[in-house]
Design a protein around this nucleic acid. Sequence first.
DNA 1: CTTGACCCTCCCCCACGAGGAGTGTTGATA
DNA 2: TATCAACACTCCTCGTGGGGGAGGGTCAAG
Lengths: 301, 301
Amino acid sequence: MLSIGQFAQIGQVTIKLLRYYDRIGLLKPVSINDETGYRYYVIEQLADLNRIIALKNLGLSLKEIRAMLHDNVSLPEMRGMLKLKQAEIRQQLEQSQRQLSEVETRLSLLEGGSTQIDVAFKSIAPQKVISVRRPIQHGDEIDPTFEHLRVVLKNHNLQFGNAIGIYHPYTNDTCTSRLALVRSDGTKLYFHELPGSGFADLEAAFTVQNNASSELQLTSELWTGRVIQSRTLPAIDHAATVVFHGSFHDRGTVYHAFAQQAQEGGYRLSGAIREVYLRVADGDPYHPENIVEIQFPIERA
Amino acid sequence: MLSIGQFAQIGQVTIKLLRYYDRIGLLKPVSINDETGYRYYVIEQLADLNRIIALKNLGLSLKEIRAMLHDNVSLPEMRGMLKLKQAEIRQQLEQSQRQLSEVETRLSLLEGGSTQIDVAFKSIAPQKVISVRRPIQHGDEIDPTFEHLRVVLKNHNLQFGNAIGIYHPYTNDTCTSRLALVRSDGTKLYFHELPGSGFADLEAAFTVQNNASSELQLTSELWTGRVIQSRTLPAIDHAATVVFHGSFHDRGTVYHAFAQQAQEGGYRLSGAIREVYLRVADGDPYHPENIVEIQFPIERA
DNA sequence: CTTGACCCTCCCCCACGAGGAGTGTTGATA
DNA sequence: TATCAACACTCCTCGTGGGGGAGGGTCAAG
C-alpha cells in the first residue's frame, strides 16, 4: 500500500492530480481509511495511471478516457473514438495553420505601415429582405436604384431597415479583377474590384422584420420591368467581413485589401458580396461619416 | 442608439457575448439606463466589435485584446505581442502534429491487433540514489550486482527504496539495435534492444531519501574495484515511459515497441535508459507478477 | 391597456487542474 | 513515549470564453 505522496512520486504526478482523478472517478485508490480519509494506492495502479497519461497525451479529454477505461469499450468502439479524435486534431491543426498565416499577414502589414483593416471571420444568419435585381453599367446607378426601391416601400407603408447591396458574380472575359469565383467547370465569374467602376449585377435590398408577412402584395410588383421580390437572404457559413468608415466612394481599398489577404491566407470568394449600408448620413452616399459592412463569402482554396 | 438585441443582430454575435464583453471591460455600451440597466450601443461600435473578432480569430486571448485596444499600444509593442502569439501558435501546431501522428500510430497498432502498450510522455524529477557502475557481459550479471549493492547498503544500515537500473549508451560498431543515440559528431552510441542479451554499461542504483546525508561514508567505498557513489540522477525533461507487468525476462517487447513508435512518432533516444524495478516479487526477477517502469529520455528527431 | 418581445441580474455549467487556508494524522527521532 | 516535521485531508477560489436557464422588470405596437 502506498500513500498518495508515494504514489505521486512514483508516477511523477502531483498529489492534487491524484485527488482530482479520484474525485471525478478516473482513478480511485484501492482503499480509503474511513476515519482519516487517507487514500492508499497499490503499485499495480501505476499501469492505469500511465495509460491515463498516455491517452491524455493523445488529446483525449478525461471524460473520454474514463469511458475508455471503465465501460470497457470494444475494439471497434475504441477505433471509432480514436478516429473521431483524429478528425478533431486535424481540425485543430488546420485552425492553427490558418491562425499562423493570418498572424503572419498581419505582421507583414504592420511592418509595411499600411492602414490596419480588420478582417473578421464570422458566419452570417439568414435575413429577410425585399429586393430588386438589376444589372447596372456604372456605380452612379446604384444610389438611384435604392432610392426608387425606398419610395416604393414607403408607398406601401412597409417598415424596413438597412439597405443591403448584393453584388452577384458576372461573366467578363476581359476582366482583370483579382476577385474571381471559379466554378466547378473551370469557368470564372467576376466581381468589381473597384465598386462602381463598371458593370455590376446588383441586387438592391432592404431588410424587413423576419416575421413580416407582406410578401404577397409585392412579389408581383414591377418596377422598370423588374420584379420586386420578398426573399430570405441565405446564411453565409464562412464570411470575411470588414467594417468601412468613410465615403462609400473610397471603399475600394477594402476590396483590394480583401483580395490580397485572401491570396495570402489561402482562401477565396465563394458567392455574392454583400454591402450592408449601416449609416448613410444625410442620405448622402459620399458623406465621410458613413459606415458600411462588407461581407465576403469565402471558402478554403 | 441601438438596443443590445439590435447591435447583436448587426454584429452577428449573441446578446450574451455582448454582456460578457461589457462585464470584462472589453466593449462597453456608450450608455446604460440607470433605472432599467438597459445597454445602448451606437453603430460606430461595430468597428470595435469587428476588430475584437478579428483579433480573436488570430488566437489572441480577450485579455490580450483588451490590452491592445485600451492601452493604445505602440507599434513595436504590437509587433512584440504578435510575435509572441506567433510562437505560441507554432507550438500549438507542433503539438497537434505530434498528437495526430501518435493517434495514427495507436490506430495502426489497434488494427494490427498487437498488444496495447501505453507509452506515456512525462518529465521525470531528479532522484537521489546510491549506485555503482559496472560493465556487464550478460544479463545474468544484472541481478547479482543489485544484490551485492543491497547487502552493502544494509550493512551500513542505510534506508533505501526501489532499485533502478541505468543503462548507459555504449559504442558497438557491429550493433544492429535500432536503439541508437547519434552524437553531434555523427558517431553513434547504442543500447541493448533486447535487455540482457549482451554487453551493457550498467549502473545499479537504489533510491534514497532526498534529504539523506550519509553520502560521505560511501563515496569512497569500493566494491570489486568500483566506487559506490551517492549521486542525484538528473531530471529528464522529456521521457517516454512504459510500465511493464510480468517477468523481467520478457520486457524486450517494450524496447521493440518503443523503437518502433519512436521511429513512427519522429522522436529518438537522447540519453541513458532507466528501469525502475517497482516490484520484484519474492526477490525473483523472473516472477510473472513483477512490475518495472522503463524510462526512455527522448528528443524530437 | 394589454401582451409579447425584449432586457436585466444572478447562478450554475463545461475542462483541467493550480494554489492556498485551515485542520488533522503519521511516523521517525529523542 | 513524547514530539514535531512532514504528510494528508476538505473546501474554496481562480483562470478561459462563454452557454443555459430562472425569475423578474420594461418597451412598444395595436
